[in-house]
Write a protein that binds this DNA or RNA. Structure first.
Lengths: 216, 216
DNA sequence: AGACTTTTTGTCACTCAGCGACAAATATAC
DNA sequence: GTATATTTGTCGCTGAGTGACAAAAAGTCT
């Protein structure tokens, strides 16, 4: 059995086999790390697509086949925390509230992807001053909204496009974004910042309070 | 008195006076309308900067002086609803809850900018399929977050960067975005859609419910 | 070992976005 | 009218991103 990670039923078995999703993902991750390295060193605008490609020894044309723009090269790093959570939404136990579930997912992620964590923190910080990176960051979270909506609709027995579902998905999602930004801001070299799980809990608690007594 | 809309104290009175903010705003609005016209007609990617500039009889160079990218040309139209609300936040009466205040602001806006409304609806719809426009749309709302945070912090007597303030500002803001998207989706030629004020109220009610009984 | 087939990568040429520099036009005060 | 400051246009450039096609890679089959 010649390791086919995509066991499609109609394998002609003829010619070069398509690149596995796993391998594609690895290449994308390598590009992402090269991009963030150059972005932090020279700044985003001063970094060209050629720079990123040359850093990896690939041609610029291939780079654009993996990512549609130089800013989007770092997308895999920015999605880091979120796609762990959205993946875990599929196994959301029925005896756990969503905040509890998300909090644990966030905590797990924090430990798991330690090497990428520093890059992610750097990127979220750059998000403030670099419009191109901010666009990617906001879009990453916007994409997650859909996933949250489906999970919530499924649990609540409502349609995924019900207003209450969409608003809840959006609010939860945006709370996670604010928590991540806070985490990035507070995490310094002295590592005195709060944990990601604590921040997620705190942010979701605010959401759970509704608009609060102050704004009403 | 030679109409100076920026009555700066140190008017040398010598040379051509700077363009008033009002006049700049008018030019930007003209560009925005030309852009959305071409975007809807030919699609975003098929519309070049030269097209937009030529539509108005200005040079391409001047176009880029008013906007940093062709997608951002429509920004004035996308901010339409939001900047009315953020402007009114300055005169937020103390006997009104934030939802009530926003609801009324949204309703007023709906009537006031009737001509721009159709373009805005078209744009928000295009936001789904055009990544460039979506980026502008998301960034517009992201910018509003800051304004909401300041208003809420001021009312609550908290620091603008307090976690609770930021989360509340973000959640309210995102609820407005979902309401606007819903409005754009539901508003057809037969005009059977709900009113903007109703949608804002409904969305903010969901926020005020917190995470709700379902997700906990 | 071939020959064969399919995917991936690289090379080339091209369009368009967007900016810096400088000239030309415009609008005011004197 | 002249002088001055602002705006606009022209020119030329770099870089993003794409389509077309050739070269290389990685397999299968005999």
């Amino acid at each position: 059995m010649p390791r086919t990670e995509t066991p499609s039923p109609e394998t002609t078995g003829r010619g070069r086999p398509p690149m596995s999703d796993r391998r594609k993902h690895i290449v994308r991750a390598q590009i992402a790390h090269a991009a963030v390295k150059l972005f932090t060193a020279k700044g985003v605008s001063a970094t060209t697509g050629d720079d990123i490609a040359h850093e990896l020894g690939i041609s610029t044309r291939t780079l654009w086949r993996y990512f549609p723009s130089k800013e989007s090269c770092v997308r895999p790093l920015l999605t880091g925390g979120l796609d762990v959570m959205t993946q875990r939404l599929r196994t959301w136990p029925s005896d756990l509230s969503l905040p509890e579930h998300l909090e644990r997912s966030g905590a797990l992620d924090e430990d798991a992807e330690a090497p990428s964590m520093a890059s992610m923190v750097d990127l979220i910080r750059m998000t403030r001053t670099e419009p191109g990176l901010r666009a990617v960051w906001l879009d990453v979270h916007h994409s997650a909204e859909e996933v949250f909506a489906e999970a919530i609709a499924d649990r609540a027995g409502l349609a995924p496009d019900a207003l209450s579902v969409r608003v809840r998905a959006a609010t939860i999602n945006v709370a996670l974004r604010v928590a991540a930004e806070r985490f990035a801001d507070r995490t310094g070299d002295d590592d005195q910042g709060e944990g990601m799980a604590d921040l997620i809990r705190a942010a979701l608690d605010v959401v759970d309070d509704g608009l609060g007594p102050i704004t009403r």
